[in-house]
Structure formats: structure tokens, C-alpha cells
Design a protein around this nucleic acid. Sequence first.
DNA 1: GTCTATAATTTGATAGAC
DNA 2: GTCTATCAAATTATAGAC
Lengths: 177, 177
Amino acid sequence: MSQRNRILDIAEHRMRERGYNAVSFRDIAGEIGIKSASLHYHFPKKADLGVELVNRYANTFHAALDASDSLTTDPWDRIKTFVDLHRNALVEQELLCLCAVFGAESRGLPEDINSAVTDFFKRNISWLTKAYEAAGVENANVRAKAGVSILEGALIVANSVRDNEVIEAASDFVLQR
Amino acid sequence: MSQRNRILDIAEHRMRERGYNAVSFRDIAGEIGIKSASLHYHFPKKADLGVELVNRYANTFHAALDASDSLTTDPWDRIKTFVDLHRNALVEQELLCLCAVFGAESRGLPEDINSAVTDFFKRNISWLTKAYEAAGVENANVRAKAGVSILEGALIVANSVRDNEVIEAASDFVLQR
DNA sequence: GTCTATAATTTGATAGAC
DNA sequence: GTCTATCAAATTATAGAC
């Protein structure tokens, strides 16, 4: 793996646990075993790292959705993939969604990062709206906005109260026919 | 108003916008017009301020619920109050829930703060469960976990994409009979 | 690509005067 | 309660050698 990706992996992991401002270049560099000055070769400013982090996260996320779309035509199977992408973050990785974390800190972040986060949410709402439409659900767009909200919120609440039933409750709502 | 409450007001406002680590004692003191050293008289450590912030926030929140409980016996009216406490944060104040913000940053915060945040969520789930039970809703506890999640998540998503319809979608779900 | 060295700033926190 | 003065540590960032 490239050093650039190693940096992004560690930064993503730590920021999804602690937030943007609680993670320093020294933290990240220390875990890799290099000096913080070396990070600036890959990402001149911290904001550059943050933006790239969100873009990579969003691309990975939406690539997984695309992959699922090519595996099945059943809209409910596709929605299940969308749910599991959120669910597994907490259940398997014990991590929140990067964009939920950055969304919660929005006014403390560089504007470039906020734009990327907003794009992520809009794209998710749009994707889920189409999936619900394909499933013949009424008010697909409203339902999609509720679905994105409940999954993001459930990660935060389930993580805080340490109860995966919170995630299950949210998943059931999104998948309800 | 006491100076202590002035400090808490400003700290709460800024941290609900930016997160815990993006707000410094100097920020807060500067807005009041005193020096940061003076803040340590009221709150020796930043963690003390953070804990008091969450406790005050939770007490105010639950006092508003209690007040509503004494105004009406209709469980759906009470649930409406619960919804509006969340909704108005964003719609009227343009702020997220303090505990959603701190919950998103949990591993970057002092443990005392996390405990207070967890208590807030647990108490909300418990309150909403009882309200749904009183309304005769099936699976009241699961529904309550979903309800708390969707409202917290909707604040973050609606704020990011600047679309209050996200909040309305979440509110409708929580109030659906 | 990574290092050393270093600058400039910010931060949480304390001591002691008023 | 607030101030001045001060500190030690941390942080983002740059310059230049290897």
C-alpha cells in the first residue's frame, strides 16, 4: 500500500473516533513511524488531508453501492446494502460515519471539508430516493431523507449507549416495506 | 445572569457549532470580555466545563419534558414536545444537539463528559419508550430507540444539506401513529 | 520521501496581586 | 472575580539537508 493511503487510513480511523481537531499530524505520523514534517509532503495542509479523507470515504462508499447495484436488480436488496454499509461501520469496526462526525463539527472545519460532507449526504439521499422509487414506495424522497438521518443518528446513539439494538431499530425502519 | 451562566451559554453555543476541541477558553473569555485565566476560577479544568455543560443541557431538556407532561395527558402531545425540542434547535437556533456533537467526538473527550452524554441518550430513550407505551404503540422501546436516533441524525444531515425537509421527515416518523 | 531544525501560534493551566 | 504574567506543551507549517 502507498504511504499516502497508509496516512489516509490512520487519519480516517482516528478522526472517526475523535473528530477532526482532536487528531494531530504528530498522532498520525507517530503511528506510521515517521515524523510529522513528512506528512506535509503528502498533504501540505491539514485541510488538504481532511478534504481528501472525505472524498476517498465517499468514493469508497458509493463504489460499494454501485457494486451492489450490478449484483441485483431487487431494490430492497440494494437498500439492504445501503443499510449494511452503515451498520457494519459500528458493528464490525466500532466506528462512526466520517461524515456524521465532520457534520457534527461543521463550523469548526475548513469550508472545503464541509462542501465534501454535504455532497456525501446529498448523494446518499439521492441514491436512496431512487431505490425507494424503484421499490414503489410512496414519498420516496421524504423517506430517503428520513433513512439517511436515522442511520447516521443511530451510529452515534448506539455507540454512546453501547446498544446495537439501536442500530437494528434504525435498520428495520429503513428496510420496512 | 450570573457570570457562570454567561460562560456556559457561550461555551454551549460555540461547541454546538464547532465541537469541543475547536473551542478554547480564550474564545469564550474573549466573547464575554474577560481574560481566559478568569475562566479557571469558574471551571478549574476544561473537562469541568464540559461536564457541567452536558448536565445543564440535559437538565434543561428534561425539565421542558416534565413541564409538558404537566400540561397534557395525551401521549402524542407529549411526543410532539419531544420532537419540537429537537426541531427548534436547528430551525430556530441553527444549532445541533450538544450531545450529538459530543457523541460524535466521544473518544476525543474526557470520560466524564462521555458518561453524561450517555445518560442523556438513555434518559431520552427511556422517556420516549414510556410515552409510546402510554400511546399504545407496539414495540415501544424499539420505536423509541429509532425515534431518538432519527432526530439526532436529522439535525446533522439537515444542517449539512441545508434542507429543513429533512427535519420534517424525521419529525413525521416519530409522530406517526 | 523522510529527516532535522525551527518558527509562529495556540492552548490549558497556575501563581499571585488587586 | 478578574487581572497580569508566565509556563510548558502541543500544533500547524516551512526550509533545507540527505
